[in-house]
Amino acid sequence: MKYEQNTIRRMRTDDSAVGHMGSLFQVIGIFFIGMMIIAFSTDPVKLGIDKGELPPTIQGDAHHYVPGSGGGNWEKNWNLHDHFNMSWDAEEADSDKWFVIEFLDTDCPYCWTAGDSQSQISEYWGDKITQIGVVVALNIDGHSGSRAEIEAFQGKLDFEGCKTTSNCKDRPGEPHNFIYIDDLDASSMGDWNLRGTPSCFILQPNGLVYFGPGQGTCDDIPAALNELFPIGQGA
């Protein structure tokens, strides 16, 4: 009697594993076919900061310097990706504005010096590009940041503390008329996987990286821009 009960129980369950394992193989097969269709018929851009890749966004409050006012105003939750023109036509390179992005630290001596070349970039290519300064506070002794220091560095205002011990009004170059993003917590810089400042990028109007650390340093940005938009030809 017990033998019969055991046999019946086994008959009721013997095929169980076969049933759901067989189904598992079926759905995996269907999923694989779906992925093959996607893989063979599309070729999306890769996310990253190398040339031709789509970088992560930069998000934070943006400071707009107002010339002559001794200050400016803050815009809440500025987002880089919102400004991309994803239907931009590469055949018409200057049909929309490109992006020049500099990650900087107001206490970094190289960023202090680069203030002058950033001013020159604005002067020569300001009508072709959207220039963006992303201000971080590197985790280094003596480096600290604040909204007041960002405003002072940007507008060359009277403020002690830029380049650690200098007055911001002595920064090389002119006041920067382009936006500065508050990334003092380095969250966007972390997303971009950058190690130091200054780090500079040129992005196409559709957001893809045209020039990054793999192509050169911040010092090479003017030359790269000159290739795109030669000075004297409308710039």
Binding site: H20, S23, Q26, I30, G34
Partner: peptide, 27 residues
């Protein structure tokens, strides 16, 4: 969505294949 429907598809096909199996309640 693809992942979701594959997982739910596994539950459904398994139950349909063996509606009296012991694991049907769980699925």
């Amino acid at each position: 969505g693809m992942l979701f429907f594959v997982i739910i598809g596994w539950f459904t096909l398994s139950i349909k294949a063996e509606p009296t199996a012991t694991w049907v309640d769980l699925f």
